[in-house]
Design a protein around this nucleic acid. Structure first.
Length: 251
DNA sequence: ATGGTTGTTCCACAA
């Protein structure tokens, strides 16, 4: 079973690139973030089953699946006005699609909102682990876990993606027993990025960061086959600033 | 240190 997570930075602006990539990569399940469209405005996706939690202009998450997908929840933080969470069941697996708040600038309310959001995700993961539900969390976490996950750590000091409080939340999730699928299989690999800014030639200079992740519950981690970054979409015309992360698990 | 780019929307805001 091949799953992918892809922050498309507007599903409508990215539709030709997305369709081409789906045709090439042939995933079974795709977690999309930043669809930037209301739920009802999500494009027709042919024979894909779609679960969508969208809003106007900003944010928005969706799951595409070759097999039926049942929405379990679209709410993580109570009364969250921002569409960032989608929990669904596909076959026997609970698939959670997240678009974690960016958190910048750290001086205003955006940073505590990010930390509250991550705390709620931690609490949800604890419940699912206690229930022994096989699950995975994929998406744009807006977290650079370690120095090796960015080109120039000094440049990220103080940024909400790399602040100690942010990375502490990530490590709390991992210490619950969730596996960072990419890092588990590529322990020391550097320059393994999933995002390159549009600005200042970041892509050409490989000035990237690894912020898109799959976290696996123990039952899913036992089925882990591979986890790879598909850099090709980032090099296309009209590319998103993110590129897909692909996860293969035993059926 | 600054500026660099993209998407949505209506021009600033988010990333």
């Amino acid at each position: 079973m091949k799953l992918a997570t892809f922050n498309v930075n507007s599903v409508r602006a990215r539709l030709p690139n997305l369709m081409e990539w789906l045709d090439t990569a042939q995933p079974d399940v795709v977690l999309l973030q930043e669809i930037k469209v209301e739920t009802g405005g999500f494009p027709q996706m042919g024979d894909w089953h779609c679960a969508v939690h969208g809003q106007k202009t900003y944010n928005g998450v969706a799951i595409l699946s070759k097999t039926p997908v049942e929405i379990i929840s679209t709410s993580l933080v109570p009364d969250d006005p921002q569409a960032r969470y989608l929990e669904a069941r596909i076959g026997g697996v609970t698939v959670i699609d997240v678009y974690v708040p960016n958190g910048n600038p750290v001086e205003n309310e955006k940073f505590p909102y990010k930390l509250r959001w991550l705390e709620a995700l931690y609490e949800r993961a604890k419940v699912l682990l206690h229930e022994e539900t096989p699950f995975l969390i994929g998406g744009d976490f807006n977290i650079i876990p370690q120095a090796v996950d960015c080109h120039n750590p000094t440049a990220w000091e103080g940024d909400a993606l790399y602040r100690p409080e942010t990375r502490a939340k990530w490590h709390q999730l991992c210490h619950l027993g969730l596996a960072d699928a990419f890092r588990a299989l590529h322990p020391n690999e550097a320059h393994a990025y999933t995002f390159w800014d549009y600005q200042a030639g970041a892509w050409q200079r490989d000035n990237g960061i690894r912020i898109d992740h799959f976290l696996l519950s123990p039952q899913i981690a036992d089925r882990l086959v591979s986890c790879t970054i598909d850099k090709a979409p980032r090099g296309k015309d009209k590319a998103s600033d993110h590129t897909p992360l692909i996860l293969e698990i035993e059926p």
